[in-house]
Structure formats: C-alpha cells, structure tokens
C-alpha cells in the first residue's frame, strides 16, 4: 500500500511541477497554454540530447535554461499578443504551437521511443517495509516538494513574489504602483516554461520519450489546474497530489476506467466548488 502511495506521489509531483508553470502563465498573462505539454516534451528531449554530452545533471541544467529562454521568447512573440484576445484564438494558436513542437521533435529525433537512463548515483533501490523502492522515484518526490516550498517562499517572502501575486490579480493597479508588469511577466513565464522543462527532464527516466508524450500529460495537467482553482498555487499542489493518487490507484485497482477517474474527480470538485479547491469566488 505504501508503495502505491509513493508511486502516486511521484506522478503527482511530476504533474505539480508541470502544472504550476501553467498556473504562473495563466496568472500573469491570462493565457491558457495548450503548448505546455509540448514544453514538457521539449524539456525531456533537450535534457536527453544534452545528457549525451554533459551527463544527466548537465542535461537537467541545459533543459531548464533552454526552456526558460524559449519561454521568454514565446512570451514576447505569442503570449503577450494573445493576452487580450478571444480565448478560442488562444486555444488555436497554442495548440498549433504544440503541433509545431511535436513535428520538430519528430524531425530531429524521429518517432521511435527513447529511454533515458537513471543517473548512476540514483540508480539503486531503498528498502521500505519489505519492498524495494527506486531511489530516483524518491528524488522526484523531493524535487516536487523543493519546487513547492521554493515557489511558496519566493511568492510570500520576496518583493518580486509580492509583485507576482499582486499582478496576477490586478495587473493595472500593480503597474500603477511602479511595477513594470511586462518585464515581470516575461520573467514569470520563463520560470513557468523552465518548470515545464524541469518536469520533462525529471520524468524522462520514468517514461519513454516520444513526440506525443506532451499531448498525453497535457490533459491531466489541465485537470490539476482547473481542479485546484485557476491561478491558485496551493490549489495546484493539492490537486496534483490527489490526482497522482487517483491516477495510480486507478491503474492498479480499476485499470479499465483509470483514465476517466481524474476527469470524474474534476467534475465532482467543480460541482462542489465551481471555482476549484483553493480559489474563492470573487
């Protein structure tokens, strides 16, 4: 049982790192980014490519930095122009971007599944009860917790974090206080895409890399964001952990309907609290 819970935490942790990037982007730009799954995939492939030259950890650093730079570019060229347009246009453009990313990866690395090895340092297992559990999976949980704590500390105890919280609820008033909300948004979007890259590269040793890996996780990351409450960091954390467990227990005990369970959970939460778990009605 404890192993199932831990596996749920691994999946939930991965989902959280990915979804919190969506939350950041939505909070500052009000853009629902369908290309986010593509950024997760690019992160995984960028990390894989760099790890061939610089090892796993070099790949992690490269992936995070490359995705941050890509995020800043996307913010300037795509998200910023999209922030005040019809949501349907946003959906079409960002979904189009996802397809472009998939085609790019397909062209460069092909359609075959690629496996990434767990770094030697973390390749072992650890005894939990009478079962062995992979150390790397515990590291994924630790990374998710570190991201959650780091983000929370940054948002609540730093001036930049205060500006981000203010700007995500009232961008004009924040700008009227002297905050350059455009520059702030570029930084925050870059952080969000860097986290998508981090989730991709961290997930790479656990899942096979393929050009379609972004599309499959995108739906569940949206379920996390909506269930948690659009724009809520705490909500995204709670939702990711819960959905990780639902996903994992579903795969083990209800394999025939496991893919439906997160959706059913989201519907149930939205009927109970239409604004999501952690967002109050404004």
């Amino acid at each position: 049982m404890i192993i199932q819970v831990l596996n749920g935490l691994v999946y939930g942790g991965m989902l959280y790192i990915l979804s919190v990037g969506l939350v950041l982007l939505f909070g500052l730009r009000r853009v629902v980014n369908f290309a986010h799954g593509g950024l997760f995939m690019l992160g995984a492939y960028a990390g894989y490519a760099a790890s061939m030259q610089f090892g796993f950890w070099g790949g992690v650093v490269f992936s995070v930095v490359a995705l941050a730079v890509l995020g800043a570019l996307l913010d300037r060229l795509v998200f910023r122009p999209l922030q005040n347009v019809d949501h349907m246009i946003t959906v079409l453009v960002t979904y189009g971007l996802l397809l472009v990313f998939e085609d790019f990866v397909h062209t460069v690395w092909g359609a075959d599944l690629i496996s990434v090895r767990v770094p030697a340092l973390l390749a072992g297992t650890i005894g939990i009860g009478d079962t062995q559990f992979p150390v790397y999976r515990l590291v994924v949980i630790a990374v998710a917790i570190a991201v959650a704590l780091g983000l929370s500390a940054w948002l609540h105890f730093s001036r930049a974090g205060l500006y981000v919280r203010a700007s995500s609820v009232d961008s004009l008033t924040t700008a009227m206080q002297g905050v350059d909300t455009e520059r702030l948004s570029i930084g925050v979007v870059a952080l969000g895409t860097a986290l998508a890259g981090l989730s991709g590269v961290v997930a790479a040793p656990l899942i096979a890399l393929s050009p379609s890996m972004g599309s499959s996780i995108l739906i569940e990351s949206f379920i996390v964001v909506v269930t948690g409450g659009l724009g809520s960091f705490v909500g995204a954390f709670i939702a990711a952990i819960v959905i990780g467990q639902v996903h994992n227990f579903g795969v083990v005990y209800l394999p025939n309907v496991s893919s439906m369970l997160p959706l059913l959970l989201m519907v149930g939460v939205l009927i109970w609290r239409p604004t999501g778990l952690a967002r109050t009605q404004s």
Partner: peptide
Amino acid sequence: VPGLTVRENLILGSAP
C-alpha cells in the same frame, strides 16, 4: 489588491 495584507499593499506602494 485582493489577497494582500495591509502591510503588503503598502510594500507594493514602495515599488518605485
């Protein structure tokens, strides 16, 4: 600004 305390609203004002 919703979600910010009085103190945080004041700190926000000192941004320039």
